[in-house]
């Protein structure tokens, strides 16, 4: 069996005395897709940032592409990041360059190719994301949905082996979300991309979840996709919401 792309062993993340999570362990192999459901969602965001090497865990060990973080120097970490696509809700485009330059930025920097050549290389991708016509516009000139799509396009342009997504279904219309799912499915099947998706909606497990990681009040539960009970999770969340609203009303 090949080396897992991402492997977390007993990782924990604490801020002072309070720990967001402890002893979280999982593995993500090539072409595998997993979902992280968290309440509050901050847990999932922190886990994604740890997996993207943007935040260091306070305990445990994370292994990316077969190497631990301790084994890597700063240059290696940048190399690893090139192989990871991260799309958070806050992730944005560089505002003072065009969509074309944003999407081809990594190519222009790493590949030592002409700007025009890099533009040609990402042209197909922009067509896939229906952004080709607006390629010379700056981010501020696009709609919010287009900006999200441009961010996805930029992350895919570097041909990542691991894609970390936060709330992919939020803020996108059904048609565009369908388009995104199609493109990512191709990546997963043809290129063997691994996906780790965080969300607050249990529906995403249907599309992305071969297995599910559920954070609930600091506890972490690992479930296979077919074991996950959508209805139960939804009911549990609704019950918690109802309880919260009752508490608020009583106050």
């Amino acid at each position: 069996m090949s080396e897992p792309i991402l492997s977390c062993e007993n990782i924990e993340y604490c801020e002072g005395d309070s720990c967001l999570f402890k002893d979280v362990s999982f593995q993500l192999n090539r072409g595998q897709r997993a979902v992280v459901l968290a309440e509050p969602h901050r847990y999932a965001t922190t886990l994604l940032k740890i997996c993207a090497t943007l935040t260091a865990p306070t305990g445990g060990q994370i292994r990316l592409f077969g190497r631990t973080l301790e084994e890597m120097d700063k240059q290696d970490i940048y190399e690893v990041r090139r192989r990871i696509g991260l799309v958070r809700r806050e992730t944005s485009l560089v505002s003072n360059v065009t969509i074309l330059d944003n999407v081809s930025l990594g190519l222009q920097y790493h590949e030592e190719i002409d700007r025009e050549e890099a533009h040609e290389q990402v042209a197909d991708l922009l067509r896939q994301f229906e952004l080709y016509e607006d390629r010379f516009l700056r981010p501020a000139q696009l709609t919010f949905e287009q900006r999200r799509l441009a961010v996805y396009a930029r992350e895919l342009a570097k041909k990542p082996q691991l894609i970390l997504l936060e709330h992919p279904s939020l803020d996108l219309g059904e048609r565009v979300y369908g388009l995104l799912l199609e493109i990512f499915k191709t990546c997963s099947i043809e290129d063997g991309c691994a996906f780790l998706v965080s969300s607050i909606k249990p529906e995403v497990v249907k599309h992305w979840g071969e297995w599910v990681l559920i954070f609930d009040k600091g506890r972490c539960e690992h479930l296979e996709g077919d074991q996950f009970d959508h209805a139960g999770y939804r009911t549990s969340m609704r019950g918690r919401g109802a309880q919260l609203s009752r508490e608020w009303r009583d106050q």
Partner: peptide, 25 residues
Amino acid sequence: IEMGYMTVLREIESIEMQGINPMHL
């Protein structure tokens, strides 16, 4: 101002995730 906005709007994080050292670029 440009660097300030890039930091606040997470543009620098985006550049880092492209495998680019923002100090260099």
